[in-house]
Design a protein around this nucleic acid. Structure first.
Lengths: 225, 225
DNA sequence: TTTAAAATATGATATTTGTCATAGTTTAAG
DNA sequence: CTTAAACTATGACAAATATCATATTTTAAA
């Protein structure tokens, strides 16, 4: 069993604000899991009962809309925490989490970390800061969804994934999503995504190779969005 | 100068978690302001440098989108706090606040309340809980914006305003917004709002009298959204 | 490696929404 | 109370997007 104290991933999230003693305790009670691509980690309406710390891999947080379509609300990667919101609000989760790649995660049970959230004010404040940042980000998403065209939103989604998750050696976007996933980020029909990507290809903004996408002209793409 | 300790409004927000001593200090340093309808309270990109506690009235929080149109991100009313996010993130605000009615607000300077946010863990946790709730609400807005039609979003906006702010004696929505404001909530053109409201009138879902709107058939309206 | 299932691609068409023009109404300032 | 400015209303048309159908390609399981 690996050790939280020496875990590099911790540096990227609020757990860095825990004391040495707290970390040792957390380390002792956490469980590590391997999650396969496509696997559901938790489902909307479930009690999450703890916090996930992502050591490796990527997953999507989705919410089912009234019309029966999933909306991807956030992509969560290595270094991120998942489940803090439900922890704080003491409610069932409003989102589902599904692995987009093979993942390595650590699960910290609620009862072990809840006390720290009340007692260690550095930790509480750090969680608070992350949440303030998420909320600001959510404002931006709301404005984009409300005011921009599907074409603009798709361009932006590509830029976001490029900026946030980077590219492979061949220049392909590291995160590989299906056209349906893109549709669920942008909030449109799968066919529309396919159509607009085809248009982007014709305009030499991107190239594709199966599901892989390479951005050829980032500036032009920024200009679209 | 009125007294925070005895202020009823406090019960509705995180300030209720302050101690008696803290409240007395806050009471001494706060300033009360009257704000006229239509007046800008703070603008996107400004340093807010404190927290507003709304004693009376309603205002809108907006963000300018790339295409030059304002998006209403949130309506803030009596009992709410404004400015906590910027306080926590120590950044300039990402939103503008504009009064939609005559308002009474108290302003608490940053340096007076910041210490409490670090020291009083009940207060910190309360702010955290509010933010978790806002974030959950933001998720819902994102899904609605992304997946629902303008017609559905407008129906939902009406229901939201009805549920949250209630009606006058004559059954009119208490919050009176221009068609343009509705357009900026829903993320559409003003003409589209006017057109869809006309349609709702024809279908006997609502009636209007100038800018005032009365919901005649809430159930049918819910069915639309 | 083969093959069925899943995903991508594209056309045809319907629907929704945006834009521009213009007219009528309401609101608020003088 | 009057009047200009702001807002609401509606038509005509254009543009964007959704839906349904079908063909092709890719992926992954056997």
């Amino acid at each position: 069993m690996s050790n939280c104290e020496q875990c590099i991933v911790r540096q990227f999230n609020s757990l860095k604000s825990l004391t040495k003693e707290e970390l040792i305790r957390i380390s002792g009670c956490k469980t590590s899991k391997t999650i396969k691509k496509g696997q559901l980690i938790f489902d909307e309406g479930e009690n999450v009962n703890g916090v996930y710390c992502i050591r490796e891999g990527i997953c999507k947080l989705t919410k089912l809309s009234a019309n029966g379509r999933d909306q991807i609300v956030k992509l969560v990667v290595k270094g991120d925490l998942m489940g803090q919101r439900s922890l704080v609000s003491e409610e069932v989760t409003n989102l589902s989490a599904t692995a987009l790649s093979e993942m390595e995660v650590c699960f910290i049970p609620k009862h072990e970390i809840m006390a720290d959230l009340h007692k260690n004010s550095n930790f509480t404040f750090d969680v608070l800061q992350h949440m303030a940042k998420d909320l600001r980000e959510a404002d931006n998403v709301i404005v984009n969804m409300a005011q921009k065209s599907v074409r603009q939103r798709l361009a932006e989604a590509l830029i976001y994934i490029h900026r946030t998750f980077g590219t492979t050696d061949e220049g392909m976007l590291r995160v590989i999503l299906s056209r349906e996933d893109y549709a669920n980020i942008v909030g449109t029909a799968t066919e529309s995504v396919i159509r607009i990507l085809s248009q982007f290809k014709k305009d030499n903004l991107i190239t594709t190779k199966g599901k892989q996408i390479r951005i050829e002209d980032l500036e032009a793409l920024k200009h679209v969005s």
